[in-house]
Design a binder for these strands. Structure first.
Lengths: 190, 190
DNA sequence: CAAGCATGTGTACGCTGGTACATATGGCTG
DNA sequence: CAGCCATATGTACCAGCGTACACATGCTTG
């Protein structure tokens, strides 16, 4: 009983040819960040989430920081796109107000994953210039989208209001109902 | 030249009798968190900041989590107290509105240290129930302070607005001027 | 269809961190 | 004022981390 002995040390994975693996790794990184926080995000953790060997991380990325930067950039891009779409679709001010309400109630508050990622990004941005740039570009883009329908000062204020509503709703004991969100937005933009 | 040789290994510190050291350690922890983030907060880093030996950390605290919990509790308490004081001092609605403006422009936006700590707390709270409780208690307290002058729904909305104004101002490329803050608050509470 | 090289895989190394613990010491109590 | 014990100190241990690197393999290109 020794022909094909497979003790334990190295079964050697058969897999190969995995185009787009780099992309999947970035997505896996976002999952890990959302679940364990930036602090708990390691090469090994990401590799496990994507089911690839550790060595694959160092092949595709020069450092963990590079992974984080790409991951957060993707996250911001993804949320900003939804923001853009909702506001582009609005044909007039009334529809724009509705778009803002939907954005807060459904899109932003709807995904705990995205919510956590955003807060993690804010915290990380305080200490990482590259991530700070990502955050700022994202905010500028949101404001620009709002300026399709509102003057610059209002756009900035509404952007802040959205942020506050989302965060406070998410971190508080009781979620704000969409009715409460609607009331707050209308009150501000009445 | 060998009588009092002092090679390098262990000069053995003379210091002793340091009442209130535990308190200082918690403050040191807050400094480290603000500078390096929760991720970069270690026993050794805190000990260095407080100029005490590593062993002192494990004597005063059972774990790093305990340090974090106590530190963030202290931070929340400290910010909430200012909040309470400003709003308690207001004698009528107009003064309450002014108090909110001062809170945002001066107290909250005035301290980068506190700002960073708050965002770090939010991120950590997503994964740590004890910290989530700290955050929620803090928010409940802010709301109660606002309810001295505004109805419950308005209080909640204003609390959210404050959060949004502070965060967006801090993370954006350009700080909001106190004039802009004033305008936004007045617009909402007009 | 050959072979080169981009991609993929396993493992070792050095370092840092949390934690445990053996030891020291001097304020306080009786 | 003696001695106890809360407080204080230094260090060792092990786990997990980032990273480097030697080796494997099979698309792709000519």
């Amino acid at each position: 009983m020794s022909g094909t002995r497979s003790p334990s040390p190295a079964p050697r994975r058969p897999r190969r040819h995995d185009p787009g693996r780099r992309d999947r790794l970035i997505d896996a990184a976002l999952t890990v960040i959302a679940e364990r926080g930036v602090a708990g995000t390691t090469h090994r953790e990401i590799a496990r989430a994507a089911d690839v060997p550790l060595g694959s991380m160092t092949y595709h990325f020069t450092s963990l920081d590079e992974v984080l930067a790409e991951a957060f950039t993707r996250h911001a891009e993804s949320v900003a796109r939804v923001f853009d779409e909702r506001l582009s679709a609005a044909r007039n001010r009334a529809e724009a107000v509705e778009a803002v309400i939907t954005l807060v109630s459904d899109d932003l508050l709807g995904s705990r994953h995205d919510l956590v990622l955003t807060v993690e990004l804010y915290a990380a941005a305080a200490r990482n210039p590259a991530l700070k740039a990502v955050t700022q570009a994202w905010m500028a883009r949101s404001r620009r989208a709002l300026e399709r329908h509102f003057d610059a000062a209002t756009a900035r204020e509404v952007d802040a209001l959205i942020e506050g509503l989302v965060l406070h709703s998410a971190l508080s004991t009781d979620l704000m109902t969409s009715g409460q969100i609607r009331r707050a937005v209308h009150r501000y933009l009445r």
